[in-house]
Design a protein around this nucleic acid. Structure first.
Lengths: 124, 124
DNA sequence: TTGACATATTCTTATATGGGAATGTATTTA
DNA sequence: TAAATACATTCCCATATAAGAATATGTCAA
């Protein structure tokens, strides 16, 4: 069985690099489809298809005006993703602390195992 | 052309729900494969395959000990994902402010367009 | 050495894409 | 109304999975 549809899972929707580019591009301001096509250099049908996916998971919104459709990133829809990745923050902070601690232990070990001159070795 | 390989892109790797579960499970402490199988109720070959994907993008690490292999989440590898989603934070904060502002405007409009009694309408 | 245990890999299969080309659908303008 | 503009959709196809079943590999225990 393949993966859950991109059209129902935001995590899956942002798995596609082009879609991430589009989201970044549309975060600053709303844009018509044509702007995305020329700015990001993606074929128009591809852009439309990506936008369809992004819209189906609520990552972008549309505003219609005549024959133009203005898309913009719905930043709030990205928040849950940010929060999920954020649940690991305490763990990477702990990891960093451990690395630092080990480095310091190693450093002090070196300092004590050599004689005084070692302290001056680094400045020739 | 399909998407970039799950084995090279962390965003793609976490697009699979089972793998997110595994990452969460392995964030707290290292575990042998069998623990994942029983705790998350996923077939052993599937677990091995998911772990292979996660390992190939550096999201988990292994420690071998006899016939056991202990896996753990490398939280630091999740950090870039957290940072990418975090680039949208300023935008969703702005969105929230706008929503709030509009709500307040609407509220004050209501207050001024109705007469005093309106303020007591809500407590019968 | 022979099993028993813990994981990994291979093979098959059903399915979900993503791109390219062509076509469809509104909407505006001449 | 006809042509042009802006997007969306459809069809085809090569490819990347993910699950399931069977099998392989590696390690410890009797």
């Amino acid at each position: 069985m393949p993966r859950a549809a991109t059209t129902s899972d935001p995590f899956n929707a942002i798995a596609e690099p082009r879609r991430r580019e589009i989201l970044t591009y549309l975060a600053i301001a709303e844009r018509p489809v044509g702007d995305i096509v020329t700015s990001l250099r993606i074929d128009q049908p591809s852009v439309s298809k990506h936008l369809r996916v992004l819209r189906s998971v609520g990552l972008v919104r549309v505003r219609c005006d005549g024959r133009h459709k203005f898309y913009r990133t719905d930043a709030e829809a990205i928040r849950p993703l940010h929060e999920w990745t954020g649940t690991f923050e305490r763990y990477w902070q702990r990891q960093l602390l451990n690395v630092k601690k080990r480095a310091e232990e190693k450093a002090s070990q070196l300092n004590s195992s050599f004689d005084q001159p070692t302290a001056f070795k680094e400045k020739p």
